[in-house]
Amino acid sequence: MSSIRNDHEVARDLAGEAGQQLLRLRARHGFEEPDVLRTLGDRTSHEFLFSALGRLRPSDAVLSEEGVDDPARLSARRVWIIDPLDGTREFAEAGRTDWAVHVALWENGRLAAGAVALPAQGSTLSSADPPWLPEERPSGQRLRITASRTRPPEFVQKMATALGAEIVPMGSAGAKICAVLLGIADLYVHAGGQFEWDSAAPVAVARAAGLHASRIDGSDLEYNALDPSLPDILVCRPELSGMLLGSIRDVADLDGAGPQAAG
């Protein structure tokens, strides 16, 4: 870690190292006790990230899915928002690669840096070097919507039918947003429950790459709030955002979408 020069690199390097630790834990423990593996994964990654941030950025606050929420973060200028293991279910299933590590920095009211490690896919996407976004989608290509493999919102199926789109189910929210960044899908949409740590890092990378990211009513995604619940999200190519937000309004009960479970 001695070569770290800026916040983008801190996010990238810490997410990547946490991911490597999780891969080693997976290989050592195996999959016969998935509940134990999930618990170990959450704890191992959280303890590493929390300790490393305390050493590298001792003046900054930390908001972690696996940590105690310190109210001091609300008056802090800089807050690291981390999900030590996004897609815990998938992490404990042999052969699955759709789980991630999220590390993001919120500074003075905005996301300033972020990284998403996809350890089982051998990559880390970060704001230090965001993926290149092709100028145009291939003409005539069917829209591909990535959504929760276990808890897809009902409106997503209605939306897919209306748009003639294909649904691509995946686990981790970070893996789904990275699928949009990598051209595997054209959009990710979710409602029904998430928290800041589910989206902060992938949104930081997505915005650095030029993607649209908002709530499903088009309003901004706000981080480091008193209540860390951030229950819905749309990430897509910018030229699709107007059409997709209109489609969501047509098929979703926006007043009825509330926090239930991450996806």
Rank of each mutant, 00 (worst) to 15 (best):
E90Q: 15
P131K: 14
G54E: 13
P71V: 09
T161I: 13
L37F: 08
A165T: 12
Q21F: 01
I167L: 14
A173P: 11
L181M: 13
A128Q: 12
A204I: 04
V251P: 07
L22I: 03
A113Q: 13
E93V: 15
A191F: 07
D69R: 13
Q141F: 08
E47C: 12
G67T: 11
I233K: 08
N224W: 05
S45A: 15
P71F: 11
W99H: 02
R28L: 09
H8W: 04
E33S: 13
V62A: 12
P138E: 15
H212G: 06
E90T: 08
D83A: 03
W99K: 06
D255P: 02
L40W: 03
M159A: 10
D220V: 09
P58A: 05
P153R: 03
W80D: 13
M1H: 12
L74A: 12
D129Y: 01
I81G: 11
L53A: 06
D35A: 10
V103H: 05
H212L: 04
D70W: 10
G19M: 00
A208E: 04
G258C: 11
Q121N: 07
R149S: 15
M159P: 06
R137P: 09
F50R: 13
G193N: 02
A191Q: 14
T161C: 08
G171W: 04
I177N: 04
L211S: 07
E9Y: 05
D42M: 02
A147I: 03
L187I: 06
G114L: 07
I248A: 02
G67F: 06
L85C: 12
I81S: 05
L40V: 09
G256W: 09
L37A: 02
D42N: 12
V205Y: 02
L240I: 04
R89T: 15
R96L: 14
R149E: 13
S59T: 14
E239T: 12
R151I: 10
A113T: 08
L230D: 03
E32L: 09
S241V: 03
G41D: 03
D232I: 05
R43I: 03
E9Q: 15
E9H: 02
E239W: 09
L240H: 15
Q20Y: 00
L49D: 04
P231W: 05
E17W: 00
C236I: 01
R144H: 00
A92C: 11
P134M: 02
E222Q: 13
S139R: 14
D186K: 06
Q260T: 14
S199G: 01
S2D: 10
L230T: 03
E196F: 08
V205R: 07
A147R: 01
A128L: 14
G16P: 01
L63N: 01
A115S: 03
V189P: 02
T150L: 14
P131N: 03
D220Y: 00
R38S: 08
F31P: 10
D186I: 02
H8K: 13
L226D: 13
D60A: 15
G258D: 11
G16F: 01
K158P: 06
L40A: 14
E222W: 02
V101W: 00
P84M: 04
D186S: 05
A204S: 14
S3N: 11
T124M: 06
P152C: 06
R215M: 06
S127N: 09
A117W: 01
D98I: 10
